[in-house]
């Protein structure tokens, strides 16, 4: 009994989060998986075990098309974020001489995470629209004379908006990875006669790869599941997979199909996470 009382803290510390994870994550995931095999017989869903929902996803080209479009947008967002985040983090770690400026700039990139995600998507709708700020500004300056519809409701606007929203998730891991590289390695490379460009390609970039991979993982997965930005700036054929899922749980009222799509999304995300995990472990095992 005494033994039990002594162990209460340990039991609580492990028990509370454990019970929560089981009740609110594992069981719910199991429930979506179960639902994804059910059958829709209007207006109810019938418990069943059949692959009909998954077959429909494979057979109907519309779903494959949306999945591919979602993957394409997410890849473009990840690449755009990388192209902005890497030089930015590189500047902070290697070029910026004042520690104070470095802290400020880093915080300036991370701070938007605290500002409403919906607002950050909404504001691009007001900027890029045909009567939006950008168009009216261009007309005002005389650069164009009629509002151009090219900015909004297409894949371009979606990539811009999602990059804007998710860029902190690319900067943070890259910054951390660059900071961890011992400075004397870079100096050694310079001493051996490598120019800054070759030092970057041969030393800095390979050594910061774990941060880059972590950034790509986060940016890709979060864009892959977003439905707010496509709703606001995506336009008629800007539906992403998450929009299709919300429709299945809303007006289309086909929960089993929506659950099957959610399982597909869960599998995509888990695959990417475990690939990036494996990459990270290989890096720490073989790198030293």
């Amino acid at each position: 009994m005494r033994h039990f009382y002594r162990n209460i803290p340990a039991v609580l510390v492990l028990g509370i989060p454990f019970v929560w994870v089981v009740l609110f994550m594992l069981i719910p995931y199991g429930v979506i998986a179960t639902y994804s095999f059910w059958e829709k017989k209007y207006p109810v869903f019938i418990p069943a075990f059949q692959w009909g929902n998954y077959q429909m996803l494979l057979a109907d080209p519309q779903y494959i098309k949306v999945l591919l479009r979602t993957a394409k947008i997410s890849i473009l967002v990840s690449i755009a974020s990388f192209l902005i985040a890497y030089p930015f983090a590189y500047y902070l770690v290697y070029r910026c001489r004042s520690a104070r400026v470095r802290t400020w700039l880093y915080m300036a990139v991370v701070a938007p995470l605290w500002i409403s995600y919906l607002l950050r998507a909404y504001v691009w709708k007001t900027i890029l629209g045909t009567e939006g700020v950008l168009n009216s500004f261009l007309i005002w300056t005389g650069l164009v004379d009629t509002p151009s519809p090219i900015f909004l409701y297409n894949q371009f606007s979606m990539v811009v908006t999602l990059t804007y929203i998710f860029i902190p998730f690319m900067v943070m891991p890259i910054y951390t990875a660059l900071e961890k590289i011992p400075k004397n390695l870079i100096e050694a490379s310079a001493d051996l006669g490598l120019g800054p460009w070759r030092t970057l390609m041969k030393v800095t970039l390979p050594m910061s790869l774990p941060g880059v991979v972590a950034g790509f993982t986060l940016t890709f997965c979060l864009s892959f599941g977003d439905f707010v930005a496509p709703f606001l700036v995506g336009g008629p054929d800007g539906n992403l997979i998450a929009n299709v899922i919300t429709t299945q749980f809303g007006s289309a009222l086909n929960w089993p199909l929506g659950s099957a799509l959610s399982i597909v999304m869960l599998i995509v995300v888990l695959t990417i996470i475990s690939l990036s995990d494996r990459f990270e472990r290989r890096g720490t095992a073989g790198g030293h």
């Binding site: 989060p17 599941g225 929506g258 959610s262």
Partner: peptide
């Protein structure tokens, strides 16, 4: 596994968390 599960929602889009709990 425990650590990975508890950190999963950082990367997992909220829609999956929402739908799984809605189903329950």
């Amino acid at each position: 596994l425990f650590r990975r599960l508890i950190l999963l929602p950082i990367t997992l889009p909220g829609i999956v968390t929402g739908i799984s709990m809605l189903n329950v």
